[in-house]
Design a protein around this nucleic acid. Structure first.
Lengths: 153, 153
DNA sequence: CTCCATGCAAAAGGTTTGCACTCCC
DNA sequence: GGGAGTGCAAACCTTTTGCATGGAG
């Protein structure tokens, strides 16, 4: 009953938890609640927020475990670290569908956006065969409608 | 004699220090060494590295002053904060010529790259008139030639 | 002369680590 | 049963802040 959400359109993907099981990841209560906390798409939690969510379900869990586990998941490539400037790192569980981030410099709200046909970004030719490209991180910085209004008080 | 370097091709720019003077920025010994430490293009120092360089020339300078000053320069738009994942923030003094960053996940080396004609990045149409875009941050992650070699030991 | 910038030191995050103990496979 | 995962607490690293002093304009 927690299985049938997220089974929509996208690349026949599965939940983070399922992918980890399939990988033979050693599964514990802590790891389960962490993976579940990272659950949805369009979520960009800090380690501390993951800890908070995980604590709801498993009060004995420790911060260290959360940090360790997030680092491990990032190393496995199952989540992505995104450094959105101010404060703590954030973790993005959407690794299946390529996307970019849109961040409001006013309120800090972060959204996923998906490239449309007009975008075409490439590593400059000069570098292309000297450097092995793994991924491209793109962040659009600006002001959301609310904050544009507030700015001109 | 510190004036005639950097007077080449680019947009008739000037040193960071000159721009700040022109702006009427209150100038002190500390601020001067910090601005000079941030000097060249293609440099991406952490606050602590700036502190180290500044200390060479002005041993009494304090870390707090470095942090305060870097924050102020960033607010003025004269340098840019770049969050390149691991560890401390880095500061980029190249604000005149648009460029992107190339980071090796092996050794952490960071280089500036300049977009060529093949790249064309736009905020998706869906967002274009809801969001006020200020700047786009692009980071290419991968492995430099040295680290590709080392990886396959 | 008047602010603003500075130094110092303490505190406030955020993250990692060492070690003994637990429990998944 | 063995080794990986966990909790706790302390350490570490980075950055910010309060307050008294000093120097630029």
């Amino acid at each position: 009953m927690a299985t049938d959400r997220r089974m929509r359109g996208a690349t026949k993907s599965s939940t983070l938890l399922e992918r980890l099981k399939r990988r033979g990841w050693r599964l514990t209560a802590q790891r389960r609640v962490i993976a579940e906390a990272m659950g949805g798409a369009h979520v960009h939690l800090t380690a501390d927020e993951v800890f908070a969510r995980a604590s709801d379900r498993l009060p004995e869990i420790s911060r260290a475990t959360v940090y360790n586990t997030l680092n491990e998941l990032a190393k496995l490539g199952e989540i992505t670290e995104v450094a959105l400037g101010s404060g703590a790192k954030r973790y993005d569980p959407e690794t299946v569908n390529r996307h970019q981030h849109l961040v409001c410099e006013g309120c800090g709200i972060t959204r996923d956006v998906h490239p449309d046909g007009e975008s075409r970004l490439a590593l400059p030719v000069a570098e292309r065969d000297r450097f092995t490209l793994n991924r491209v991180e793109i962040v659009f910085w600006g002001l959301c409608p609310k904050c544009v209004g507030a700015a001109r008080t």
